[in-house]
Protein backbone atom coordinates (compact mmCIF):
# COMPACT_ATOMS: atom_id res chain seq x y z
CA UNK A 1 0.00 0.00 0.00
CA UNK A 2 1.29 3.37 -1.02
CA UNK A 3 -0.20 6.70 0.04
CA UNK A 4 1.68 9.98 -0.42
CA UNK A 5 -0.01 13.26 0.45
CA UNK A 6 1.66 16.42 -0.76
CA UNK A 7 0.19 19.72 0.43
CA UNK A 8 2.14 21.67 -2.18
CA UNK A 9 0.58 19.71 -5.04
CA UNK A 10 1.73 22.41 -7.46
CA UNK A 11 5.28 21.15 -7.00
CA UNK A 12 4.38 17.80 -8.54
CA UNK A 13 2.73 19.55 -11.49
CA UNK A 14 5.94 21.53 -12.08
CA UNK A 15 8.09 18.40 -11.74
CA UNK A 16 6.07 16.62 -14.44
CA UNK A 17 6.18 19.60 -16.77
CA UNK A 18 9.97 19.57 -16.47
CA UNK A 19 10.27 15.82 -17.21
CA UNK A 20 7.67 14.99 -19.82
CA UNK A 21 9.46 16.32 -22.89
CA UNK A 22 12.74 14.59 -22.05
CA UNK A 23 11.46 11.16 -21.03
CA UNK A 24 8.40 9.26 -22.31
CA UNK A 25 8.01 6.41 -19.82
CA UNK A 26 9.68 5.93 -16.45
CA UNK A 27 9.50 3.98 -13.23
CA UNK A 28 8.84 5.99 -10.08
CA UNK A 29 10.52 4.16 -7.21
CA UNK A 30 8.84 4.45 -3.83
CA UNK A 31 10.66 3.45 -0.67
CA UNK A 32 10.63 4.48 2.97
CA UNK A 33 13.12 7.24 2.21
CA UNK A 34 11.20 8.88 -0.63
CA UNK A 35 9.71 9.04 -4.09
CA UNK A 36 12.40 8.95 -6.78
CA UNK A 37 13.00 8.44 -10.46
CA UNK A 38 15.97 7.89 -12.69
CA UNK A 39 15.44 7.86 -16.44
CA UNK A 40 17.29 8.56 -19.66
CA UNK A 41 16.06 10.22 -22.82
CA UNK A 42 15.55 7.90 -25.80
CA UNK A 43 19.05 8.54 -27.17
CA UNK A 44 20.72 7.92 -23.77
CA UNK A 45 22.56 11.24 -23.96
CA UNK A 46 20.70 12.85 -21.06
CA UNK A 47 19.52 11.47 -17.74
CA UNK A 48 17.20 12.86 -15.10
CA UNK A 49 17.28 11.96 -11.42
CA UNK A 50 14.44 13.12 -9.19
CA UNK A 51 14.22 12.77 -5.42
CA UNK A 52 11.34 13.86 -3.22
CA UNK A 53 12.21 12.88 0.36
CA UNK A 54 9.51 11.28 2.47
CA UNK A 55 9.83 14.04 5.12
CA UNK A 56 8.59 16.56 2.57
CA UNK A 57 5.18 14.87 2.37
CA UNK A 58 2.44 15.63 4.89
CA UNK A 59 1.64 11.93 4.97
CA UNK A 60 3.93 9.23 3.59
CA UNK A 61 3.03 5.58 3.73
CA UNK A 62 5.02 3.05 1.73
CA UNK A 63 4.72 -0.45 3.18
CA UNK A 64 7.18 -2.00 0.79
CA UNK A 65 9.36 -0.80 -2.07
CA UNK A 66 7.24 -0.26 -5.14
CA UNK A 67 8.08 0.68 -8.69
CA UNK A 68 5.32 2.48 -10.58
CA UNK A 69 5.77 2.51 -14.36
CA UNK A 70 4.12 5.57 -15.82
CA UNK A 71 3.81 7.36 -19.12
CA UNK A 72 4.96 10.84 -18.11
CA UNK A 73 2.85 12.61 -20.72
CA UNK A 74 -0.27 10.92 -19.40
CA UNK A 75 0.72 11.62 -15.79
CA UNK A 76 1.28 15.27 -16.70
CA UNK A 77 -2.18 15.38 -18.35
CA UNK A 78 -3.77 14.14 -15.14
CA UNK A 79 -1.80 16.49 -12.89
CA UNK A 80 -2.75 19.41 -15.13
CA UNK A 81 -6.30 18.82 -13.91
CA UNK A 82 -5.19 19.77 -10.36
CA UNK A 83 -5.17 23.43 -9.36
CA UNK A 84 -1.81 24.88 -8.37
CA UNK A 85 -2.86 25.13 -4.72
CA UNK A 86 -4.51 21.69 -4.55
CA UNK A 87 -3.32 19.02 -2.15
CA UNK A 88 -2.29 15.98 -4.21
CA UNK A 89 -2.38 12.40 -2.91
CA UNK A 90 -0.84 9.52 -4.86
CA UNK A 91 -2.28 6.10 -3.99
CA UNK A 92 -1.51 2.60 -5.22
CA UNK A 93 -2.13 -0.91 -3.95
CA UNK A 94 0.76 -3.37 -3.99
CA UNK A 95 -0.65 -5.62 -6.71
CA UNK A 96 -2.61 -3.00 -8.59
CA UNK A 97 -2.07 -2.12 -12.23
CA UNK A 98 -3.21 1.46 -11.68
CA UNK A 99 -2.37 4.52 -9.62
CA UNK A 100 -4.84 7.09 -8.27
CA UNK A 101 -4.17 10.81 -8.04
CA UNK A 102 -6.50 12.59 -5.65
CA UNK A 103 -6.80 16.37 -5.76
CA UNK A 104 -8.29 18.31 -2.84
CA UNK A 105 -8.92 22.03 -2.94
CA UNK A 106 -7.35 23.87 0.04
CA UNK A 107 -10.75 24.43 1.72
CA UNK A 108 -11.85 20.85 0.98
CA UNK A 109 -14.89 21.89 -1.09
CA UNK A 110 -13.76 19.98 -4.18
CA UNK A 111 -12.28 16.51 -4.27
CA UNK A 112 -11.34 14.73 -7.49
CA UNK A 113 -9.74 11.40 -8.17
CA UNK A 114 -8.07 10.34 -11.39
CA UNK A 115 -7.02 6.74 -11.95
CA UNK A 116 -4.24 6.04 -14.41
CA UNK A 117 -3.10 2.71 -15.82
CA UNK A 118 0.42 1.65 -14.90
CA UNK A 119 2.89 0.20 -17.41
CA UNK A 120 5.62 -2.42 -17.29
CA UNK A 121 8.79 -0.55 -18.12
CA UNK A 122 12.19 -2.12 -18.59
CA UNK A 123 14.41 0.61 -17.30
CA UNK A 124 18.11 0.62 -16.90
CA UNK A 125 19.45 2.14 -13.69
CA UNK A 126 22.90 3.63 -14.07
CA UNK A 127 25.37 4.03 -11.22
CA UNK A 128 26.37 7.66 -10.97
CA UNK A 129 29.69 7.98 -9.13
CA UNK A 130 30.21 10.80 -6.66
CA UNK A 131 32.39 13.29 -8.47
CA UNK A 132 34.60 16.18 -7.41
CA UNK A 133 33.76 18.95 -9.82
CA UNK A 134 36.28 21.38 -11.24
CA UNK A 135 33.73 24.17 -11.24
CA UNK A 136 30.30 24.74 -9.73
CA UNK A 137 28.22 27.68 -10.91
CA UNK A 138 25.11 28.76 -9.03
CA UNK A 139 23.05 31.37 -10.85
CA UNK A 140 19.45 32.58 -11.27
CA UNK A 141 17.52 29.84 -13.07
CA UNK A 142 15.63 32.35 -15.22
CA UNK A 143 18.93 33.85 -16.40
CA UNK A 144 20.26 30.41 -17.36
CA UNK A 145 17.01 29.65 -19.24
CA UNK A 146 17.22 32.96 -21.09
CA UNK A 147 20.83 32.31 -22.11
CA UNK A 148 20.06 28.80 -23.43
CA UNK A 149 17.04 30.07 -25.35
CA UNK A 150 18.90 33.02 -26.85
CA UNK A 151 21.94 30.97 -27.87
CA UNK A 152 19.82 28.26 -29.47
CA UNK A 153 18.53 30.83 -31.98
CA UNK A 154 22.12 31.16 -33.24
CA UNK A 155 23.76 27.75 -32.80
CA UNK A 156 23.14 24.12 -31.86
CA UNK A 157 25.81 23.75 -29.20
CA UNK A 158 26.98 25.81 -26.23
CA UNK A 159 30.51 25.95 -24.90
CA UNK A 160 30.41 26.58 -21.15
CA UNK A 161 33.75 27.87 -19.88
CA UNK A 162 34.52 28.73 -16.28
CA UNK A 163 37.53 30.87 -15.43
CA UNK A 164 38.45 33.30 -12.68
CA UNK A 165 36.66 35.97 -14.73
CA UNK A 166 33.29 34.23 -14.62
CA UNK A 167 31.26 31.75 -16.62
CA UNK A 168 31.08 32.16 -20.38
CA UNK A 169 28.40 30.67 -22.62
CA UNK A 170 29.38 30.67 -26.31
CA UNK A 171 27.85 29.43 -29.52
CA UNK A 172 28.42 29.71 -33.24
CA UNK A 173 26.14 29.16 -36.18
CA UNK A 174 25.67 30.02 -39.84
CA UNK A 175 24.75 33.63 -39.07
CA UNK A 176 27.56 34.34 -36.61
CA UNK A 177 28.74 33.86 -33.05
CA UNK A 178 27.62 34.81 -29.54
CA UNK A 179 29.35 35.00 -26.16
CA UNK A 180 27.62 35.74 -22.86
CA UNK A 181 29.75 36.19 -19.75
CA UNK A 182 28.22 36.12 -16.27
CA UNK A 183 30.48 37.41 -13.52
CA UNK A 184 30.38 36.43 -9.90
CA UNK A 185 27.78 38.53 -8.08
CA UNK A 186 27.07 37.62 -4.46
CA UNK A 187 23.89 39.81 -4.37
CA UNK A 188 23.69 39.90 -0.59
CA UNK A 189 20.32 41.70 -0.56
CA UNK A 190 18.64 39.33 -3.00
CA UNK A 191 20.30 35.89 -2.72
CA UNK A 192 17.99 34.51 -5.42
CA UNK A 193 19.72 36.85 -7.89
CA UNK A 194 23.24 35.81 -6.92
CA UNK A 195 25.77 34.24 -9.26
CA UNK A 196 28.35 32.27 -7.29
CA UNK A 197 31.28 30.50 -8.94
CA UNK A 198 33.35 27.92 -7.07
CA UNK A 199 36.30 27.00 -9.24
CA UNK A 200 39.05 24.50 -8.52
CA UNK A 201 40.38 24.61 -12.08
CA UNK A 202 39.27 26.34 -15.27
CA UNK A 203 37.04 24.06 -17.33
CA UNK A 204 35.46 24.27 -20.77
CA UNK A 205 32.89 21.81 -22.14
CA UNK A 206 30.57 21.66 -25.16
CA UNK A 207 26.92 20.61 -24.94
CA UNK A 208 23.91 20.25 -27.23
CA UNK A 209 21.60 23.22 -26.60
CA UNK A 210 18.51 21.15 -27.39
CA UNK A 211 18.95 19.23 -24.14
CA UNK A 212 19.91 22.29 -22.10
CA UNK A 213 16.70 23.98 -23.26
CA UNK A 214 14.74 20.92 -22.23
CA UNK A 215 16.29 21.03 -18.72
CA UNK A 216 15.22 24.65 -18.31
CA UNK A 217 11.58 23.48 -18.27
CA UNK A 218 12.34 23.00 -14.54
CA UNK A 219 12.92 26.75 -14.08
CA UNK A 220 9.54 27.34 -12.30
CA UNK A 221 10.68 24.95 -9.54
CA UNK A 222 13.57 27.04 -8.21
CA UNK A 223 14.98 30.57 -8.34
CA UNK A 224 18.49 29.21 -8.62
CA UNK A 225 20.13 26.52 -10.74
CA UNK A 226 23.45 24.80 -10.02
CA UNK A 227 25.67 23.77 -12.94
CA UNK A 228 28.51 21.39 -11.99
CA UNK A 229 31.30 20.83 -14.51
CA UNK A 230 34.35 18.62 -14.82
CA UNK A 231 36.47 17.84 -17.87
CA UNK A 232 35.21 14.78 -19.76
CA UNK A 233 32.28 14.22 -17.42
CA UNK A 234 28.56 14.83 -17.90
CA UNK A 235 27.41 18.22 -16.63
CA UNK A 236 24.92 18.20 -13.75
CA UNK A 237 22.17 20.83 -13.90
CA UNK A 238 20.32 20.83 -10.59
CA UNK A 239 17.10 22.49 -9.46
CA UNK A 240 16.04 22.16 -5.84
CA UNK A 241 12.44 21.08 -5.28
CA UNK A 242 11.44 23.27 -2.31
CA UNK A 243 13.00 21.82 0.86
CA UNK A 244 12.17 18.25 -0.10
CA UNK A 245 14.58 17.21 -2.79
CA UNK A 246 15.94 17.91 -6.22
CA UNK A 247 15.72 17.30 -9.91
CA UNK A 248 19.14 16.72 -11.50
CA UNK A 249 19.77 16.57 -15.21
CA UNK A 250 22.96 14.94 -16.53
CA UNK A 251 24.16 15.60 -20.06
CA UNK A 252 27.11 13.96 -21.79
CA UNK A 253 29.53 16.54 -23.23
CA UNK A 254 30.42 16.58 -26.90
CA UNK A 255 33.99 15.46 -27.41
CA UNK A 256 36.61 15.83 -30.12
CA UNK A 257 37.71 12.50 -31.54
Amino acid sequence: MLELRLVQGGLLKKVLESLKDLVNDANFDCSASGFSLQAMDSSHVALVALLLRSEGFEHYRCDRNLSLGMNLNNMAKMLKCAANDDIVTIKADDASDSVTFMFESPNQDKIADFEMKLMDIDSEHLGIPEAEFQAIVRMPSAEFARICKDLSTIGDTVVISVTKEGVKFSTRGDIGTANIVCRQNPSIDKPEEATIIEMEEPVSLTFALRYMNSFTKATPLANQVTISLSADLPVVVEYRVAEMGYIRFYLAPKIEE
Binding site: H125, G127, T157, P234, K254, I255, E256
Partner: peptide
Protein backbone atom coordinates in the same frame (compact mmCIF):
# COMPACT_ATOMS: atom_id res chain seq x y z
CA UNK B 1 32.51 18.37 -35.67
CA UNK B 2 32.60 17.13 -32.08
CA UNK B 3 31.16 13.71 -31.40
CA UNK B 4 28.18 13.18 -29.09
CA UNK B 5 28.80 10.13 -26.89
CA UNK B 6 25.99 8.68 -24.83
CA UNK B 7 25.99 8.33 -21.05
CA UNK B 8 27.15 4.71 -21.08
CA UNK B 9 30.62 6.03 -21.79
CA UNK B 10 30.63 7.70 -18.34
CA UNK B 11 28.15 5.82 -16.16
CA UNK B 12 27.65 2.07 -15.91
CA UNK B 13 24.92 -0.27 -14.80
CA UNK B 14 25.81 -1.39 -11.28
Amino acid sequence: PPFQPNLHRFFHSP
